[in-house]
């Protein structure tokens, strides 16, 4: 079981408190998080299921490598952070 956290910036658009999710990869963990919150999916992933350009995912503080297929492994108890760059004026 991993815990997935989202930023306050994203929570302004979609109600997405931290959620526990099972799965061995980033993709399966996110699928679990999206299952109860389907609108969230397209805020994080693009039409092809890849991580959006300015989004970033950290697993226990380490950025994932595979942004397209989300195949990085997730260990039980991991803390998964879905983050984004901040820009603009």
């Amino acid at each position: 079981m991993a815990t997935v956290h989202f930023t306050s910036n994203l929570r302004r658009h979609v109600d997405c408190p931290s959620v526990e999710s099972t799965g061995g990869t980033v993709k399966s963990v996110l699928d679990g998080a999206f299952a109860s919150n389907p609108r969230l999916r397209h805020y994080v992933l693009d039409d092809q299921g890849a991580l959006r350009k300015h989004m970033r995912i950290l697993i226990d503080g380490q950025a994932i490598f595979d942004r397209h297929h989300l195949s990085d492994s997730v260990k039980p108890g991991a803390q998964v952070w879905v983050m984004q760059a901040l820009s603009g004026g």
Binding site: N9, L10, H13, H42, Y43, V44, D46, R52, K53, H54, M55, Q84, A85, S87, G88
Partner: peptide
């Protein structure tokens, strides 16, 4: 256009 979060 939410930029980071895509088009809505």
């Amino acid at each position: 256009n939410h930029g980071h979060f895509g088009i809505k």
